[in-house]
Amino acid sequence: MASWSNASLREKSGWIMGALVAVLGGWYFLKIGSTAWQPGGAVPTGLLVRFIVWCIVGSIIVQAILAMEDARAADAPADERELQAALRASHWSGLALGVGAVTSLLMFPAHGDGVVLFHAILASLVLSEVVEQLGTAWLLRRGF
């Protein structure tokens, strides 16, 4: 098994970005707690903006550090193996988002609350992003 120092830039990016989105998504949903799933609540705009800003800032910092570590690899386009891994992980990610979004919509008539629907779809989006990033890294590491 390849060690971290031998991992390609895209594999490192996948592990770190997947962990980052998982941690920030977890932080957001832990912060709002069970109110996210109770009808009649409001979207915590300030918290949501902080979540989005931290995702963007975190991504920029991670990509900048990885690019500084290996500028040549950062400039190079993905090769055939990396593209295949990304495509396969993107397929899994699409399935996760699709199942999450459809389930959220199917449950909407039961509660009829837009905020609950919003949080259910946001959770699906976070999950699909985590699946895509970690899936790409996992495929690049273990082979496929």
């Binding site: 390849a2 031998n6 991992a7 390609s8 594999e11 690899a73 190079a76 090769d79 055939e80 193996r81 990396e82 690049l140 273990r142 082979g143 496929f144």
Partner: peptide, 21 residues
């Protein structure tokens, strides 16, 4: 036109390259 990691994967038999490669 591939990464060093792809060459490693080919050598270890973890990846079959495209016909072009």
């Amino acid at each position: 036109g591939v990464t060093r990691q792809t060459i490693i994967a080919i050598e270890q038999g973890r990846y079959s390259p495209s016909l072009e490669s």
